[in-house]
Computed example of a mutant assay.
Amino acid sequence: MFYGGYGYHGSNFEQTYHCYPASFFDKPHLEGGDKVIMPPSALDRLASLHIEYPMLFELHNDATQRISHCGVLEFVAEEGMVIMPYWMMQNMLLQEGDTVHVKNATLPKGTYVKLQPHTTDFLDISNPKAILEKTLRNFSCLTTGDSIMVAYNNKQYYIDIVETKPASAVSIIETDCEVDFAPPLDYKEPEKPQQPIVPASKAPAEDQDANVKDEPKFKPFTGSGKRLDGKASKQQAPEVHSAALSAPSDSNKRANQQTAARASTGATNSTRQKTGKLVFGSSASNNKEPEKAPIKEDESPKKDESKFQAFTGKSYSLKR
């Protein structure tokens, strides 16, 4: 049970004080930590109790139901008063002279703390980790939901305690604690450069133009013809313009070109047959056999034997 005024109860320390900021008593060094100054009577009571060291306390504001935790630096305050850092009074929503309940507490050692700076200016410090470690040496405990103040280079930086483990309030005295940072409250993601939007009607046309430029130009039915006997060809196939073949709607031009190609092929075949050479795949040889000249009876067989006749003679078998 809690007794008002300056009474004590049982084996626990529990007291009500009027709070005032450190600036009222010329104690600016209090602003760099979480420790308070209590009256000498509190020391007498704590000495008679079996209190675990270091001494930690729970602060409670009945008007706003705000709870925080702190340590103690000295016992030199006037009776009925407690001197607190101003940033701690802001967390507790306390004004000068408001009452606050102080109770001794036992907190587990912290293993994990997640911090979130209010502004990105804190990250601009050359070595924010070293500054934070130096500042937290003056702290006894951390409470989830509080905003601590870090002073550096005549400037104050406020940092929120987002999360603590293994409890919502932990002790950070002589313990190895993992510290993690959340993005600052005023941090904004960098905007990605917007790419120009190309209308759908223009995009296919540009792609088609690019494809036309990249494709090599092809000219069909171009080149020179060669004879099988090695002699120069007297008649060349007429060149056909590729543009005429590429036009799908001009069927008359295609028919004329096919007719001209057939005529030129026929002329070449007839020319080759007149020279007496073998022409493989000739249409003339397949359709009609060449007429043989009548053999005169008075010609001597010796003259006939001297001439070479193709595909004549004896046949031999590979088997013996």
Rank of each mutant, 00 (worst) to 15 (best):
F2Y: 13
G5W: 12
Y6A: 15
Y6E: 02
N12G: 15
Y20G: 02
D26W: 14
P28A: 08
P28R: 11
G32D: 00
K35Y: 03
K35T: 12
I37Y: 01
I37M: 10
D44T: 06
R45M: 11
L46K: 05
L49T: 06
H50E: 13
F57H: 03
H60G: 02
A63F: 08
T64E: 11
Q65F: 08
C70H: 01
V72E: 03
F75K: 12
E78R: 13
G80C: 05
I83H: 05
M84A: 12
Y86E: 04
Y86Q: 08
M89T: 00
E96C: 05
D98E: 10
N104L: 01
K109Y: 06
V113W: 00
P117N: 04
H118R: 13
H118P: 00
T120A: 15
D121W: 09
F122A: 01
K134L: 14
T135S: 05
L136E: 10
N138L: 12
N138W: 14
C141P: 01
T144Q: 14
T144D: 04
G145T: 11
D146T: 14
N153W: 13
Q156D: 15
I159N: 00
V162S: 11
P166V: 07
A169G: 03
A169L: 02
S171M: 07
S171R: 00
I172W: 00
V179K: 10
V179M: 13
V179A: 04
A182K: 07
P183R: 03
P184I: 07
D186T: 06
Y187H: 04
Y187A: 05
E191M: 11
Q194I: 13
Q194M: 13
I197D: 00
V198R: 06
V198I: 15
A203F: 02
A205M: 11
D207E: 13
D209I: 12
D209T: 14
D209K: 15
A210S: 12
D214T: 10
D214K: 00
E215Y: 04
F218Q: 09
K219D: 00
P220I: 10
S224Y: 09
S224D: 09
K226V: 13
S233I: 09
K234H: 05
K234N: 07
Q235T: 01
P238A: 08
H241K: 10
H241L: 08
H241T: 04
A244E: 07
S246Y: 07
P248V: 03
K253T: 14
K253W: 04
A255M: 12
T259R: 01
T268D: 01
N269S: 12
T271R: 01
K274V: 10
V279Y: 05
S282Y: 08
S283L: 12
N287M: 09
N287T: 10
K288M: 07
P290C: 05
P301K: 08
S306A: 05
S306L: 05
K307S: 09
F308W: 11
L318K: 02
